[in-house]
């Protein structure tokens, strides 16, 4: 009564849990739609969006890209350590990944604080509505990711660490698309 192999094979190939991939694809759809909406609304008001973009902090965001991809490799190495049952190394890599996640949030916090000091809020301009929605939603994922990485570090097991790392890579993935579209493309 087992299923024929041809039908389960593709899913068996998928590295990591099926559900985390459902989440990754869903998040990509959400952020993809958000970025598409951003560009579509931008087309109706290029000057306004350019002015808004000038107020952003591309250098801080570029730094954050480096922080996040480095954190990503640490999470991947943690998963590898967990697989090899090297618990100490696994925890160390997770702590490193989490610390960089916190750095990302601190840098992000400075960006928000500076914008707020200039009196720029969610409703200031459509560009800022998107900016706050997209980066805020992403930052919420970073915060959640730090928490998840911390949780799986407690009782280090290969499967939870791998799943948490996959979540973390998704956060990474979203950021490398978010960053150029919102901060850089003029």
């Amino acid at each position: 009564m087992t299923d024929s192999p041809t039908e389960t094979e593709p899913f068996d190939d998928l590295p990591g849990d099926l559900m985390i991939w459902v989440l990754i694809v869903s998040e990509l759809l959400v952020f993809g739609a958000g970025l598409a909406a951003f560009l579509a609304v931008r087309a109706t008001d290029p000057a306004g969006f350019a002015t808004a973009q000038a107020a952003l902090h591309p250098a801080a965001a570029a730094l954050n890209t480096a922080v996040l991809v480095t954190s990503g490799v640490a999470a991947a190495l943690a998963a590898r350590s967990a697989e090899a049952a090297r618990l100490g190394a696994g925890r160390l890599w997770l702590a490193f990944a989490m610390a960089l996640g916190v750095v990302f949030l601190v840098v992000k916090g400075f960006e928000y604080a500076d914008l707020a000091a200039q009196g720029i809020g969610v409703e200031s301009h459509a560009a800022f509505t998107f900016y706050y929605l997209l980066t805020g939603f992403h930052a919420a994922h970073v915060a959640a990711g730090v928490l998840i990485l911390g949780l799986v570090a407690i009782r280090l097991r290969p499967y939870p660490v791998e799943t948490a790392a996959a979540f973390w890579h998704m956060v990474d993935l979203v950021w490398v698309l978010l960053f150029p579209v919102i901060y850089l493309m003029g």
């Binding site: 991809v69 990503g72 490799v73 991947a76 790392a165 890579h169 490398v176």
Partner: peptide
Amino acid sequence: ARTILATYL
């Protein structure tokens, strides 16, 4: 993005 998908994931 492709690098992250291919290697990290």
